[in-house]
Amino acid sequence: MNYLYFGIGTGLGAVIRFLTTNIFKQNNLGLYATFLVNMVGCLIAGIIFALNQNSLVIVGMFGFIGGLTTFSTFNAENANFYFSYQFKNIFIYMLSSYSLGLILCGLGFLLTSGLSK
C-alpha cells in the first residue's frame, strides 16, 4: 500500500514540475522553474518530517516532494553554465539552492514542530 501512495505522489510531483517548467520555459526562464520547485519541495520536506507520522498520506507526500524536486536537472543546468563559461552563475545557482533549501527545510520543520506543541 505504501508503494501505491508513494508512486501516485511521485507521479503528481513530476507532473507539477513538468507543467511549471513548461510555463516558465515559454518566457525562457526554465531555470527558475527548477529552482522554484526545489525550494517548495524543501519547505514541504521540513513540514512533513516534523509531523513525524507514518500515515499513507505522509508517505504520499514524501513521494510527491521526491517527484517535484530534482537533483539531476539541477546539475544538468549547472553543467550547461559550465559549457557556456558562466562560472559565476554556477556559484550563484548552487549557493542559493543549497543554502535556501536548507533554510526552508529548517523553517518548515521548526514552525511545524512549534505549532504542534
Binding site: 526545489n38 519541495g41 520536506a45 521540513g46 516532494i65 517535484l68 537533483f71 536537472t73
Partner: peptide, 22 residues
Amino acid sequence: GTGFIGSFTTFSGMILDSYKLL
C-alpha cells in the same frame, strides 16, 4: 528524462538528509 530520471533523483530528500545530520 524529465519524468523518470528527474523523479529518480531528489533535491528535497538530499536537503532533508543534510538537515537530519545537523
